[in-house]
Amino acid sequence: MVDDTAQLYTIEGVAAGFLMILTAYFIISSSTVITPQETHIADLQLEQLGSDALRVMDTPTENGTPGYLALCLSNYDPISFSDNITRLINTKTDSGTDRLHYNTTIFYRDGAAIGNATFGGDIYYRENAVKVSRLVTVDHFPPGAGIPNRKQVVLVEVLVWRS
């Protein structure tokens, strides 16, 4: 016959084992708890990703030549810019692409005033976005761009958000 004494001790043993596993789980997972109201960590990653994309595009491939970002601006070519930044921010290590969108505005100085010109991107419907920016020296702008045609530093501001 099965011995049915010490049942409480058995229950206690099981409970203690369960408690230890639960404690280990909480301690391991406590460093990555994200509460629903807490989106700063995602913002931080988006900001870094966007800044890195702009930095890559602003880095010249050869010494003494303008970077790709400056070329896109001096040709006023939002389509080439779009192709590059979309690929840079949406590339994932595994197959498939991410769901990031962007919207670009160029800010320039016109006398004492600051003017702005849109430079392509997706339509922004007030999603939770971060803003990254980059100072770029541009030799000239084509006449159609509406930006004073001189050698100048412009600020490229890019809104990045995930849909």
């Binding site: 800010f107 320039y108 100085r109 004492a112 600051i114 920016s133 100072l135 020296t137 001189r150 050698k151 100048q152 530093v153 412009v154 600020l155 501001e157």
Partner: peptide, 17 residues
């Protein structure tokens, strides 16, 4: 060019950032 670019950077940073 130095004066121009300096003005650009200072004004853009003050206004936008």
């Amino acid at each position: 060019a130095y004066g121009n670019l300096q003005n650009d950077i200072i004004n853009l940073s003050l206004n936008r950032k």
